[in-house]
Design a binder for these strands. Sequence first.
RNA 1: GGACGAUUAGCUCAGUUGGUUAGAGCGCCACGUUGACAUCGUGGAGGUCGUUGGUUCGAGUCCAAUAUCGUCCA
Length: 1015
Amino acid sequence: MKSMTTEIPKQYDPAAAEAQWFHFWESKGYFNADPNPAKPSHVIMIPLPNVTGALHMGHALNGTLQDLLTRWRRMQGYEALWMPGTDHAGIATQSVVEKRMLEEEGQTRHDIGREALVKRIWKWKDEYEARILSQLKRIGASCDWRRVRFTLDEVCSRAVRQTFFKMFKDGLIFRGKRLVNWDTFLQTAVADDEVYEEEIDGHFWTFDYPVVDNAGQPTSERISFSTTRPETMLGDTAVCVHPTDERYTHLIGKHVRIPVNGRIIPIVADALLADKTLGTGCVKVTPAHDPNDYACWNRNKDLMGEPINILNTDGTLNERGGAWQGVDRLVARDAIVAEMERLGHFGKVEDRKIPLKHSDRSKTPVEPYLSEQWFVKMDTLAQSAIDAANDGRVTFYPERYRQSYLSWLGEKRDWCISRQLWWGHRIPVWSNSYDVSELNSIRETIEQSIQSGESCDPSRKISYHISAPEKGRFQVLICFADGNQTLEYAFEQLGFVRDPDVLDTWFSSGLWPHATLGWPDTTHNPPIVGQDPLKPTGKNEVLPYFYPGIVLVTSRDIITLWVARMVLTGLYNMGDVPFRHVCIHPKIQDGFGQTMSKSKGNGVDPIELIEKYGCDGMRFTIASFAGETQDVRLPVGYECPHCQGIVPQEQHHLKFKPGKPKIKCAKCKKESQYATPNYIPDEGEPVARVVIERFEYGRNFCNKLWNATRFAMLNLEGYSPGDVDSGSFAIEDKWILSRLATVTDEVTTLLGVYKFDAATRSLRDFVWNEFCDWYLEMLKPRLRDESLKPAAQRILVAVLDTTLRLLHPFTPFITEELWQRLNEIAPVRGIPASTQASAAIIIAPWPTGLDHWRDTALEARFYRLQELIVAVRNVRGTYNISPAVSVSISVRCTEDVAADLKQVQPQFELLAKAALTAAGAEVSRPNASASFSLGDADGYLPLEGLVDLQAEVARLRKEADKLRGFISGSEKKLTNQSFIDRAPAEVVVEVRETLAGQQKQLASIHEAIKQLSGC
RNA sequence: GGACGAUUAGCUCAGUUGGUUAGAGCGCCACGUUGACAUCGUGGAGGUCGUUGGUUCGAGUCCAAUAUCGUCCA
């Protein structure tokens, strides 16, 4: 047993502990959560990371907080489930894979086809999912790994299919037109977050259109407008002026003729689109190719007629282009300018910088393009989610984020759910069109098919919609519920074709909270890795036990995209919200205030920091960031591989440059390659690795904790468990127990409202500034005294035990390591009565019921002692007295303070290297002594030969000056009649008392100055 | 353009309902390797709280305006 204590190394080795204990926890099944009627459940659904790439520090923060909460609740006795998984992330992933394919093989998706592309993306997904999950494990994530899900897996797919079917049947899904960002190079729509804006050199042309009379003949008037895209005039459906623009009011309702194609279009008034103060005040309206124009068209549909699409998918003009059909839009642009000039409708042209949206994938300009899309009707769904936040079923932390959630939902804009991609959940709708004469026969065919086959309830397998006839034809849309492949095939034989589009990624991730629990399956529990075949339960016990969850932990940018969708789909499918709390945490930025992201190339891999600072050090630091207000800025550095000097990251280091740029160390002047997501360093080449010095905060804290425990263990020789009579507690025992009780209460409360930063500070201050700096120091003499040692050991072990448990959610690995070591030396511990400690800290109970230790009066008394000791140290510092030299001190003070002082007399030597010679009201000032005053206690240090009279007087005068400042502030208040009259009585009393104390203190200092100066 | 947040010590950040002349970590200065810890200890220097105006007996804290930065939505 004794050998154990001497083996403990001086420094904590994070890598060893991390490898050992993660495996231990997982193999013991401590992460697993299963329905258990004896316990309340606590559920957190991970904000599923995209499989596009590896995780960065933003994810590490998110994961750390969820793990912290999960471990905390688990210790509190909850059946704590943290559900892991990843998102297929439609366009993002497909685009990464396509890009790589193009770079490495020169192939596009059209070269290899849908099936082959999807197969490749699955391969990519497998690789990155594995990487992501292993990163999460490295940060200590105590997810129930048996339950890991993927949005395209069987379980999630069933939920998607069922939700779509239900919505289709309920009439919530419809087809509609919408402007999308069209990539003419890749010939696909791209999402808003896949485009970036870039200024290009362009032109700003001014033309005019002739106003025509009712017969379509030109009048003498013309109306001028300017544009950067003249070719779109082929698709104009109106020109627009401001309704109060006097230049044009007489023209509103009249028409103009487009000179290049002769089409007659109306002049409309729209206050939102036209701006009197800009240019001519008149604009052309091309709803099919401009979002603002499209919005205008929506407001003025009746006046304009249908939007006119002039483009083919490859960016050439279509049949609406007339003479320019088949010509690329940019070539046509110049031709049309020339034609307008020839016809005499050209005004002028000027050069201008034009902000233009580009596709992130092809780097080519995108065209706004009107196309057919699928939508979900949002009115009632959005309202249900609004109600849930308004009536408190869903609460936001911090509260202000409720606003962005509500205002976004309040718009109730229909949700466009189709994407022209191959990677994702394919829309389960088949369509075909028929001549009106076939209407009855096709309806009959469908009805007959529904009745056929062995499937039970016909209304649950098929839902169809027949459109209103147009030009003698109508369209039939059929949505099949999951598991009707035979019917799908049968209808394909009839010529029905499945929609090629896939669903928006958020459609599936929005179902995450209930889909992962097996919904809509009511007869089986969701599958679990390692439990095969499924245990036949006859019902799904997991879903009702774990739904609804408790808290969603995420960052603010997906409140609308994801949080709102989960709430409304949860209400729609389950009839209840998916979680009660939404905890919004800060975003991680680099040293320049830019949010960390893969595309910016400024992301830092948490693994790099874990290897440098230890997982617990990383976690503790990151938890200390997670407050309610600010985002977190992390200045990054590169550690020179030659001399370990730190080169601060500069912005140019983040920009992608071809080749392998080097970084130069300012210290040793050597160059080296550096770690960046932009390239892989050469094999065997020395690399400057990423460091973030702020993480030393957590690493140092862990080392401190390690050594405090090490100290305890080195002093546990001969430890025996046993009861400790609280009557025998020394003042420092009572103090540390009172502080421990207070901190336990604080941390518990703070975690409950997701104030991780404050909880972390509270713990650090307690461990470092109270437990280590004061308590352990004061305990040293007792641990050397054989008669006092047994009780001191028991209290020390008990305090340490509780402290480790409080820290476990923050720093799981080091606390488990120390707990296990403590279990070998002191398995039975606790005060006043001792009990057998838990076999692992991860399942140890969270500290509760310590309130009876709290004693604020005692804490105040102890604070007076600390002040005294600090004052002595201050004097020592001033005179530069060597720590080897002991001084003596006498204190003039009240008898209460004297009694406390005498109790801690032995520690004075250790804490201030001062021998307390006398304490009490009768103590007088010795000659040639330095002194200090605390108001109700004055200390004297005889420093024969050490005291420099002049220096001491100067020091005291400085003190006195400072006091006078305080005093005049207090006096000023008390002589202010309005203060006396209007301030609350207790505040006035407080100021009076403060003033009295300050005056007393000043008097003591004056006395000392008087004596020293001998007058 | 709208909404929200931030602006406090050289750096990164706390500061709960307005109440002594504002705190922490890092960095800096001085001293110190005393058997838990130099990833350490002790002491110290250093901010008037972006700017302007207002409310109040009293403002870092509340209100208004303004500047700058960040984020989301247009």
